[in-house]
């Protein structure tokens, strides 16, 4: 069985079976990254275009390497040096890329839903690499891969997501995915940074870190965006760090084998204490490696076998 869809737009519409297939396909991909010759010929002749309307090092490089390890030709377009500054619409830019031969368009955009609009107009596969505050599905998949790799399972684990839930597409995608795979998801943050009615997604809300991390198997720390302070959502960085920063003391309330995760880039000393980021329990570097493996799996599953979405029957 394959992944019977053209695009990866979000975790919300992925089934448990699809998530399982992506995570299992990423396992052999990870072995390729560890080899001396980090290349397989699978996507020879395919073109992957990274279309990033927001700055990114990690995700863009990760997609670029994933494509290259699979022998696809990968091209990066950053909007500051492209026709976007001349006023071209998103749709026209993407269509131009498609008629040049793009098989996969990876897009990051500040507007929620931008990848969904593209997917309707392109026959190429579209991968959402982050859209506004909406979703960042490949980050959630790499997080879930990392959890499954370390813990052997996802179902039944207590996962605490800490920080700015309101503005976090990473949190939203992880909540959809983890809940679908049977994890018990908790969100922790100041009331101003937790979206109302988020419990409808099946999560439990905590405003106290101490209560939220108790007995957790996984603590997922979110980046706190410093510009949020200017909007008055929390008083000072120092107060945020004091009330919600993940310190060694708070980690000790979780299970002894707790995993510490962070999607990066980190503000050391704000949302996460340096000694926690560098501790034995931290899998932050592993997450980066796994990101490449998961993206290789996705490129293979979306672009690897002929053109399943164009074939009838």
């Amino acid at each position: 069985m394959g992944l019977n869809r053209k695009d990866l737009l979000g975790m919300q519409d992925l089934t448990a079976e699809e998530i399982q297939l992506i995570l299992e396909t990423a396992e052999p991909m990870k072995d390729i990254i560890r080899r001396q010759i980090k290349k397989v010929p699978t996507l020879r002749g395919k073109v992957v275009i990274n279309l990033f309307y927001e700055p990114s090092t990690r995700t863009r490089t990760s997609f670029e390497l994933a494509g290259k390890y699979m022998s696809a030709d990968t091209i990066n377009i950053s909007t500051s040096t492209s026709s976007v500054v001349k006023g071209e619409t998103l749709q026209d830019t993407a269509k131009t890329l498609e008629v040049m031969g793009a098989d996969v368009v990876v897009i990051r955009h500040s507007a929620a839903g931008a990848p969904h609009i593209l997917s309707k107009h392109l026959s190429a596969s579209v991968i959402n690499a982050g859209d506004g505050f909406h979703e960042h599905p490949t980050q959630a998949l790499l997080d879930m891969f990392t959890i499954k790799e370390k813990k052997g399972r996802i179902a039944g684990l207590k996962v605490a997501i800490v920080g700015d839930i309101l503005h976090s597409r990473v949190a939203r995608s992880n909540i959809w995915g983890l809940a679908r795979m049977g994890a018990e998801v908790r969100v922790i943050g100041p009331a101003t940074l937790v979206p109302p009615e988020i419990e409808k997604l099946g999560v439990t809300i905590y405003t106290s870190v101490e209560e939220g991390v108790r007995d957790a198997d996984v603590i997922m720390v979110l980046r706190i965006q410093l510009e949020r302070q200017q909007k008055g959502l929390f008083p000072t960085i120092r107060e945020y760090a004091r009330l919600y920063g993940i310190t060694a003391e708070r980690v000790s309330l979780a299970r002894p084998d707790v995993m510490i995760m962070h999607p990066g880039p980190m503000n050391r000393g704000v949302e996460i204490a340096p000694e926690v980021a560098d501790s034995m329990q931290s899998v932050i570097n592993e997450q980066v490696t796994n990101g490449v493996a998961v993206r290789m799996a996705l490129l293979y599953l979306l672009a690897g076998g002929g053109n399943p979405h164009e074939t009838v029957g």
Partner: peptide, 13 residues
């Protein structure tokens, strides 16, 4: 891989 319609499942080497 480009002529078959569904990608075969990959196992570990």
């Amino acid at each position: 891989l480009t002529t078959i319609t569904h990608q075969p499942v990959i196992h570990k080497t």
